[in-house]
Amino acid sequence: MAIIKTTCVTLLLFILSGIGFIYSGFYPIGADQRHHPITLWVLTTLREQSIARASRDLEVPPLDDPALLLSGGADYNEMCSSCHLKPGKANSDLSLGLYPQPPNLTLKPEAHDHSHGKGGHNDPDVNARRQFWVIKHGIMASGMAAFGSTHDDGRIWAIVAFLQKLPQLNELQYQIITARRTSNHNPN
């Protein structure tokens, strides 16, 4: 009986201490602070496992169509490059200031400093599914917005198609591919 009583009191004190800490305001919430390694491991693992589970059944369409690269490239340049960079730009105010730091998508996946889950680095389909899901749904409290409410799936897959080729592009190729096409523009 005494053991049960002690356990309950300890548990209650633990919960009250946790609540007290939350309300104390002592937790350093600034993006210029770094997580404790354990917190970082918990958050990173939680994120990767969640994305892997949520995206595992997505069917990847063919992504080699040049038209997809053009429409996805223009969207990437306007929506993503300020955080995820472009050839010839190694950092930006946002890439340096956000925490967690947005991955540099001009690098190949294996060069990123975080895991992409089981098989993520070696399997292009796993990477593509993962990228589609992240663009569509975003990631909580990370600065990554959910674009699914304003962009349809076809447009998001076009950005994914562009991301598969981005690490291979030089500055000139990037400039040409990401320029917004004016073919529908009426010259008259």
């Binding site: 429409s71 320029a179 917004r180 004016t182 523009h185």
Partner: peptide, 14 residues
Amino acid sequence: HDPSEHKNDSEQPN
């Protein structure tokens, strides 16, 4: 995000 908004102010391909 409407692509047509960017057609006139975007950089032309080099």
